[in-house]
Design a protein around this nucleic acid. Structure first.
Lengths: 218, 218
DNA sequence: CCGCGTCTGTGACAATTGTCACAGACGCGG
DNA sequence: CCGCGTCTGTGACAATTGTCACAGACGCGG
């Protein structure tokens, strides 16, 4: 985690101007700005301490839930111009019941401002744009959680995999993920994913390579 | 749905005084106050329209999610001094992506004030106590959603049933629910619940009756 | 171009969970 | 106290999903 120059953060602040009042952008400018390499573990599953709330301006952070046995499932990503709704919730609620067993890892090189509890609490009273930002963030997460619950409660593993592949292939027909990661995304095990993918390949709907899946027609 | 007298709502307003500023309580007092009998369907799964946001002061509303095939799973309850986080979210976000396939049914006779979008939007800017209320509501739902996802992703049906029984028996050792309702709570089918309950009875951990389960030792 | 860590493939199998089809028990309401 | 709707019990079975064990392929880094 390296602190970078004020100069570098400048362009990101311009982009934040679309979200926040100038005065709030100014306050954000005074926050620590850090850049974190890809694949950095920001929070281990067994470590409930978060010191700062990240406001991500480039890259993304993958948040997964892990149970005692080590089984894992994807919860959501914190993308550009998003923040961590959980640490915001913790900041706004003194008696917040903390959620643990969450793991946070950067997907790519990720740049973010670090906010403190005090700031978040004050901004929530002071800035309408901040409240709108938090409300939108909550919405986005709620929608995702509904979707996860739907998938787990109602869809079989093969459908979950299919829909995940469709989602992933929306931007790029070539998906660069291992079967293990894909299994964690949908809450199953690698062997099952390998088998199902092999089926899809046999029917010509995808093409498999090491560490990648080429989507033909799903 | 019958409108009741201002007199009846009075005592509930006193209780709301613990949550909200006097001025906000006054505003709530001017909202329509209704009483709804038990087992009333407030919102069908296929009906996405909600006209008002309820602020429940007595009773509770069960919110379940239903998929196309009719399979159902319990999401959460709106209890006393709680509101519907989804319709609040919809009120606060013009571009809110609406969640459908949700069903709302009163569990008992339920009394509530009905709030409008406009009020919720204004209160959010105007009253700190309202913002705290909404934040606490969101927290509570997020915690519940995490728990549901955990259960579905990591726990087998028998464990889910066991934990649900433990939860339900916390207040009363006699649980008054049918196997079907219990199955919907944990996202499985009646036959499975019947079988698992029979096993628990065989090992002397519960006692079964028609429409009730007596918890001995779980 | 060798070696080794990672990733993928696959068979055999077990366990879990859901489906179907029915029987019978319960108890409310007349 | 009869009838009927609802609730529960259960067997037989199928399908899905996960487990284990292992083989082999890939490709990076020296």
């Amino acid at each position: 985690m390296k602190k970078t120059s004020n100069l570098e953060s400048k362009s990101y602040l311009d982009a934040l101007g679309d979200l926040f009042e100038p005065q709030l952008v100014q306050e954000i400018a005074d926050c620590p700005f850090v850049s974190v390499p890809a694949e950095t573990v920001l929070r281990r599953a067994d470590d409930a301490s978060i010191l700062h709330t990240p406001l991500v301006v480039e890259g993304s952070i993958k948040i997964t839930r892990i149970d005692e046995s080590g089984k894992e499932i994807l919860m959501y990503f914190i993308n550009e111009n998003e923040s961590c709704f959980l640490s915001i919730a913790a900041s706004l609620n003194q008696n917040f019941s903390n959620i643990d067993a969450l793991r946070a890892v950067t997907e790519a090189e990720t740049k973010m401002f670090l906010l403190t509890d005090k700031q978040i609490l004050r901004w929530n009273d002071q800035y309408k744009s901040w409240r709108a930002f938090v409300a939108a963030l909550h919405n986005s997460r709620f929608v995702q959680f509904f979707s996860i619950i739907d998938q787990l409660a109602f869809k079989s593993v093969d459908v979950r995999l299919l829909e995940k592949l469709r989602e992933l292939s929306r931007h790029d027909k070539e998906i660069h993920l291992t079967h293990q990661v894909l299994a964690d995304y949908i809450g199953t095990v690698r062997e099952v994913v390998s088998r199902l993918l092999k089926n899809l390949e046999a029917t010509g709907r995808i093409k498999l390579g090491r560490g990648k899946i080429e989507v033909i027609n799903l």
